[in-house]
Design a protein around this nucleic acid. Structure first.
Length: 468
RNA sequence: GUCCCCAUCGUCUAGCCUGGUCCAGGACACCUGCCUUUCACGCAGGCGACAGGGGUUCAAAUCCCCUUGGGGACGCCA
């Protein structure tokens, strides 16, 4: 049997990392088994969906590299198929018209709740034999007794008493299909064999199984992936910081780092932490999905991101970084200079944004100053610092071959002559040139900065380091 | 409230199905040391968990039950 999986986002918001993760699982599972991975946009809620959101989701998937097979299916264009299924159930007696108003149904739910039962529609119109009329909905005539069961590929055997289930609405009074109906019809028509989705759909599954049965269709296999929780162990939401794929992109994460992080969240393959796309397609399997919810760890994502930054080619980073440098305040970035800086920063930056901030002083003269090391330095006698930095400015100004060997030689001669330790001289030089307490090799930095900037910044150290 | 699900280091997890090789392995974070002109990287160590209680068994992280804790769902949303 050829496997077909799907990702079915509703365009009511950005692509969430939870959604992205189930998409990754579905994608990897299909690829690993030589099957197909298809995309269906669930845009049936006209009031909450719009085209820009759909485009955002498509963009995020493209950025992550989640390629789907064939054309995207839009659920809003499949109303005819949905309605045909409802009509079929009406004909076979598996569905009926109901004229209860929303208020009346709400009252039934209140009553059930008050009696300690699960809130649900009480089946008022079930046996009335009503025909189509203004304001009527179509409900599923669900079995009153028995149990609905399914074998979840992640959770195993799940059974729910039919008494817990509702005669759910299949078609609204305005003639549009409801979610559970549309999902079943679409998954069936699209030939989906494995429905991989979030845990929040476990409770929908028995309802959907009932629809499959009413329609006489084969039920696909289900795999419900545990949720992603915020650090407070609550369902992930905006207040947990970055939750949309787009935000991670803006924050300077590499797509392969996010994919690698997300795929390892709730899934594992022995002790392996790093997975290339090809390795995933080699080893991914649903049986290795975990059963309990997982908490997001920004630190681990950072570690992976740094790993992938180290692995990246300089050319690639040269292409990506200008955007972040400009965001940080630079303009007209010299890419040939950038190409020389990047190798020095790959092991020192966690994100592209971080790298841009660390490189900014090469491109602008008004760069930010690290408070802590600066304050420490300024506790020393300013006159002494001034004398030394001006001496060095003179000495460096006279160097014709402004390369790191010459600079290092001159620096050490001055250091020895005045019996100074490296850090005594290195710290003020570094701070006045870069505003940072650490970073790339001091002499590499000076060579890359060039004589003019080095001399100017050494002489102007007071203006840059002393505030107010 | 009702139903469904879950429970190994702070976090992600291996092990659980097919009990003994586990006084529980790996990774992130944290700490120490080494390397080093700084900061990183890298390397070597360290800290750190089977939620609790009952069973079953010669033997339980692994099987069963209860308790507790956590998550999700109960819409003419998806």
């Amino acid at each position: 049997m050829s496997i077909v999986t799907r990702f079915a986002p509703s365009p009511t918001g950005h692509l969430h990392i939870g959604g992205a993760r189930t998409a990754i699982f579905s994608w990897a599972y299909a690829r690993k088994n030589g099957g197909k991975f298809v995309l269906r946009v669930e845009d049936t809620d006209q009031t909450r969906s719009d085209a820009s959101m759909t485009q955002g989701i498509l963009d995020s998937m493209a950025w992550l590299g989640l390629d789907y097979d064939g054309e995207a299916v839009y659920q809003s264009q499949r109303f005819d198929a949905h309605n045909a299924a409802v009509d079929k159930m009406l004909e076979t007696g598996h569905a009926y018209y109901c004229t209860c108003t929303p208020d009346e149904v709400e009252a039934m739910r209140e009553k059930a709740r008050a009696e300690g039962r699960k809130p649900k529609y009480d089946g008022c119109c079930r046996e009335k034999g009503l025909g189509p009329c203004e304001g009527a909905v179509v409900r599923l005539k669900a079995p009153l007794m028995g149990t609905t069961v399914f074998e979840d590929l992640v959770k195993g055997h799940i059974a729910v008493d039919n008494a817990e289930l509702d005669d759910m609405i299949l078609r609204r009074s305005d003639g549009t299909p409801t979610y559970n109906l549309a999902v079943v019809v679409d998954d069936h028509d699209m030939g989906i064999t494995h429905v991989i989705r979030g845990d929040d759909h476990v409770n929908n599954t028995p309802k959907q199984v009932l629809i499959y049965q009413a329609l006489g269709w084969d039920v696909p296999k289900f795999a419900h992936v545990p949720m992603i929780l915020g650090p407070d162990k609550k369902k992930l939401s905006k207040r947990h910081g970055a939750t949309s794929v787009m935000e991670y992109q803006k924050d300077g994460y590499l797509p392969e780092a996010l994919v690698n992080y997300l795929v390892r969240l709730g899934w594992s393959h022995g002790d392996q932490e790093i997975f290339t796309k090809d390795e995933l397609f080699e080893v991914f399997d649903i049986v290795n999905l975990g059963t309990s919810p997982s908490v997001l760890s920004p630190e681990k994502l950072n570690w992976l991101n740094q790993h992938y930054i180290k692995e990246s080619s300089v050319e690639r980073l040269v292409g990506l970084l200008p955007e972040f440098l400009e965001e940080a305040g630079a303009s007209n970035v010299d890419t040939s200079l950038l190409a020389k800086i990047i190798p020095e920063l790959q092991a020192r930056a966690v994100t592209l944004k971080d790298m841009a901030e660390k490189a900014l002083f090469f491109f602008v003269d008004a760069f930010p100053i690290d408070e802590k090391p600066t304050n420490k330095l300024l506790k020393q006698d300013h006159a002494v610092i001034d004398e030394r930095l001006n001496d060095l400015a003179e000495i460096f100004g006279d160097i014709d071959d402004f390369d790191k060997e010459s600079l290092e030689g001159a620096f050490h001669r001055y250091m020895d002559k005045h019996s100074l330790k490296f850090k005594d001289l290195g710290a003020p030089v570094r701070l006045s040139l870069s505003g940072q307490g650490g970073g790339i090799g001091l002499f590499d930095m000076m060579e890359l900065l060039g004589k003019d900037k080095v001399v100017t910044r050494l002489k102007g150290w007071k203006a840059t380091l002393i505030k107010e």
